[in-house]
Nucleic acid binder design. Structure first.
Lengths: 334, 334
DNA sequence: CTGTTAGCGCATTCAT
DNA sequence: ATGAATGCGCTAACAG
């Protein structure tokens, strides 16, 4: 059996109350006794049990982090940032994946809640779903809204708009868009922002013809490759000269498809991604993308979940266009 | 205040003992009463407190997972697999990053231990260090050994050997190797395996000249790019025709460097990585690599940490050569 | 089969 | 300033 506060008290010849007070740094204890107790603690290698303490205080130092998939670089980065901040504050992070499956999400939320985390950071799978279950635990959602809970997110519609604007300003008039799953609000926002960008452009340049074609899949590499192939295999002349994607992973999959088809980037095809994952600046050519301020997202999320922010219901962060080499002026019309 | 077992007992008109027995499925309770109690539990939305239960049983259902960096795709995949298996067994995963820093590792281990996890999965930063601290909690290390604890790992030396063998059998006689940090056993094993491969080849083909140059850095993309540039900028004729790396991330960084220098892969340069992360098959050209059987690693690790495996001290798994497009026959000597 | 009770490790209140 | 006692929510041992 591990050594308890009682053992320490006995060895130090004091009561458990005194030991407890020594542990709580702020309490007032005679210096001689404090030293004695600290000595015994050191000597015995005593480690207060979080079980007893948490039960007594009815509070844990756990933060639940529930995301679709930790192998997604965006969520990995989020997890890393959250964990760094949390551990610096004395909290530990409980990690769970939902695999974008509402049923799994439901089970994972229940499992989390049974651990009585101090707070929950949730990237909800689909809209609605859990909702009621989360009552009683302060929950902050990231990236995707959930009725009745605080949300920290980049302005996805704005990001989509910026992507369209960037491509159009480079002279592209035949655009493709690879969307994420329509079931997610984030996909819908990015896509509708993209469409708004085109609409706005048409309005300002009345009479200007802008073609666009939208396909939809998941956020992963494979979807980017598959859907990219679909877009790129249109009849020559109708093939898009620029494609925006809802994630960098899709964009990298798309680059893969372009390479396989002998389509050069950016000479024949401009590509712009979304997220700015670390890999974006390492692929060839380096990926132009819409950056999410992820460190900022993590910081606000954690502050919110720890209850340190005014109970504002939504934080909407500005995305940033990162120009690299995968986007260029449209090729001359032949 | 949340609702407790006492409330349930009161509403159901039974004792807490009975409610507890209903909760413990295996115990024997009168059917009518059981139904009644279950009804009340449902109605009140009662959720047993893991705090009380854990304190009583002196046991948690937490598995600590301590890795260098969750944004490293290899560890992300490991985390995902471990989490999937753990949650299926009713365990939750505590995640922490060490950032490859011994001091941070020490602190993180202490933080984990203070949560009293049932077991600990650790990818130790450098050799030694923690050691004593982990006493009392069943700990399994992955990838890198730690004195006195079980280890689950791929046969890194064998993998390094396979990489050398693959390149040599393609006719390459001027090899480069991008190593991970010497402070880690895994780096040393892969590198010495690679060297053994060359030595062995020389022995079998007596008189054959094989040049090799080894550089060392971290496991990440950036190191691959930087060190790759170093290797590739040797005087023409002395430049390696094939380079093996200690990680896929390095290999992808290296591809980036090659592209910047106008060196074609695999025509001018063959590349072989290590790990087989998902991205490996998506880069252009698709990356030849030494695969780690990561699902298997995760499975064995979790079984071991749950104490279901005979207390074998070491599990050494076979790596697998995955041939893709980044490696090819050596260019003819000019 | 069910009720009662002790006690897991700790923080805190009440005396002193 | 310190000791003694209480109870957080729960399980298990003991009675009945």
């Amino acid at each position: 059996m591990a050594i308890t506060i009682k053992d320490v008290a006995q060895h130090a010849g004091v009561s458990v109350g005194t030991v407890s007070r020594v542990l709580a740094k702020n309490s007032t204890v005679n210096d001689a006794i404090r030293l004695k107790v600290e000595g015994v603690i050191e000597q015995l290698g005593y480690r207060p049990s979080s079980l007893g303490r948490n039960l007594r205080l009815n509070r844990t130092y756990l933060i639940g982090l529930l995301i679709p998939d930790i192998t997604n670089p965006f969520f990995a980065e989020l997890a890393k940032q959250v964990e760094m901040l949390a551990s610096a504050e004395g909290y530990s992070v409980l990690l769970a994946n939902t695999h974008d499956d509402p049923k799994a999400e439901q089970m994972q939320v229940e499992a989390m809640l049974s651990r009585l985390p101090f707070g929950l950071i949730l990237v909800p799978v689909s809209d609605s779903a859990v909702n009621t279950i989360v009552a009683g635990t302060r929950t902050v959602t990231v990236d995707r809204p959930l009725q009745g809970h605080a949300l920290v997110s980049v302005d996805n519609a704005r990001g989509g708009y910026m992507a369209a604007d960037h491509l159009l300003s480079l002279g592209h008039r035949n655009l493709g868009y690879i969307s994420g799953p329509s079931s997610t609000e984030v996909s819908r926002a990015r896509r509708s922002g993209f469409i708004s960008g085109i609409t706005e452009f048409r309005r300002q340049h009345s009479g200007m013809v802008v073609e666009s074609r939208i396909v939809e899949g998941n956020f992963d590499y494979l979807s980017g490759e598959t859907l990219g192939r679909t877009l790129l295999q249109s009849a020559p002349g109708t093939r898009p000269t620029a494609i925006a994607t809802a994630s960098d992973q899709q964009a990298i999959g798309l680059m893969r498809a372009a390479a396989d088809l002998g389509i050069r980037v950016p000479e024949d095809l401009s590509i712009i991604g979304f997220d700015d994952i670390p890999l974006a600046s390492l692929v060839f050519p380096r990926l132009t993308t819409i950056r999410q301020p992820i460190a900022e997202i993590a910081r606000i999320t954690l502050e919110a979940v720890l209850g340190r922010l005014s109970p504002q219901k939504e934080w909407m962060l500005e995305p940033v266009l990162i120009r690299r080499s995968s986007s260029a002026f449209a090729p001359p019309v032949t």
